[in-house]
Design a protein around this nucleic acid. Structure first.
Lengths: 220, 220
DNA sequence: AATTTCTTGTGAAGCATTTCACATGAAAAA
DNA sequence: TTTTTCATGTGAAATGCTTCACAAGAAATT
């Protein structure tokens, strides 16, 4: 029996991203030895308004104490629950090129509960090689191994030319969440979540900002 | 004498990101041999509304022909100008760890006009080593070499613990744009543009989406 | 040449997000 | 115990962004 609370309102992407930011800052506050934190202080650290912080949290419940603020450990746990990172997610990396193999050792993933447990590639020279203790599997066994290992998320770091084929394979294996690094618009069924990580876009934003003397409200 | 047109309205971050997407899709359309494209077709490919596409462009001028659409090559050039990628930007990577060295061979940067011309690290074992034809410099020479080479953007891929020191150095060297990969809130002077690339955040979004059966309007 | 078809560019409307402002209640101080 | 201080939680207002809907203009068709 599930005690899952359905989210009443439609939560915006921005709110979710800010929750991620709060979570990270709360970890830091915890390390720094703070027991409580106010929306004002949290806002200061994230360059937001206190009202924004309180509103974001209010979509999910009331976690604070008037006159005092939020309990750091408790709020961190609550946000972890909301984000679904109060557990470990098994992740596979498909495409062990430069970016793919770099991500295998990306500490921040582990820290937030994403455990890379499997690597796939189609290159015979890479298959069987070891990256941080994980042996690269043949992409041919993708469906079988993903199911066996109960992998729920995929990081896709293959060339754009083959990305769609890989997505189709991954979807066939039952995966519902894909983080795509290829600069291409991929098609997925409606029940599969797809996010695109496009690092070049961020440099383009910087380029635009310099050229236009841009002053946005929320340079994230 | 500059013929630069100041941007009248405040342009939203979303609009800039969509311009980047249009630019990429226009390159593809060009390769596919299309001479013109309508807002409808562009919208279909990006999963947006045609009105959104037209509105985005309208902030910067009118580039289309009624009844016909946009000239692919011309529009691509215009957006390139707007984004400031109608030229080559010299970029340096600071921190040649896993991510840093992976980014040196990231083709998409080159494709969009970002040329990595210098690498910096503080590790004696890395200094002098060669990555795709670029020799890693000692971080001690950062200010001098950045000025000499006319580097305008920095990709920062150092551990979070030293990121702020590196930013301070980079700012001192006169750099006005930084793309930061360290999961930490950095401080920069108001005239320096800072973007944070946080790959873990995207996985957290996926985690949230799965847990909450989230159906947002614009899964970007 | 006139008509039809198509698609842009853009005010206005509709929606979404952020900020304001204050009632509420808890803790600290007197 | 009473008063003061502080900070949350939240409707309402303000702001921002997206979509609608249509006039206008260009090309294609008759």
């Amino acid at each position: 029996m599930s005690s899952e609370q359905p989210v009443k309102k439609r939560i915006s992407e921005s709110t979710i991203h800010r929750l991620s930011m709060y979570f990270r800052t709360l970890s830091l506050l915890q390390k720094e030895g703070y027991e409580t934190v106010s929306s004002k202080e949290l806002a200061r650290r994230e360059k937001l308004t206190p009202a924004q912080v309180r509103k974001d949290l209010s979509f999910f419940g009331s976690f604070g104490t008037r006159g005092l603020g939020y309990d750091v450990i408790e709020l961190k746990a609550k946000i972890g629950e909301i984000l679904g990172i109060d557990r470990v997610w098994k992740v596979a990396v498909v495409g062990i090129g430069n970016i793919g193999s770099a991500l295998v050792s990306y500490k921040e993933f582990t820290r937030q509960g994403f455990k890379i447990v499997k690597l796939f590639d189609n290159d015979q020279r890479k298959i069987g090689s070891n990256h941080k203790g994980i042996v690269v599997s043949d992409i041919k066994n993708l469906e079988k191994e993903i199911k066996e290992d109960g992998i729920e998320m995929i990081i896709l770091t293959v060339p754009a030319t083959v990305a769609q084929y890989m997505v189709d394979d991954v979807v066939r294996a039952g995966v519902k969440a894909i983080l795509n690094f290829a600069p291409i618009n991929l098609k997925v069924p409606p029940d599969v979540y797809l996010r695109n990580e496009n690092m070049s876009m961020e440099l383009e934003y910087l380029s635009f900002a310099i050229r236009n003397n841009h002053t946005p409200k929320n340079m994230k």
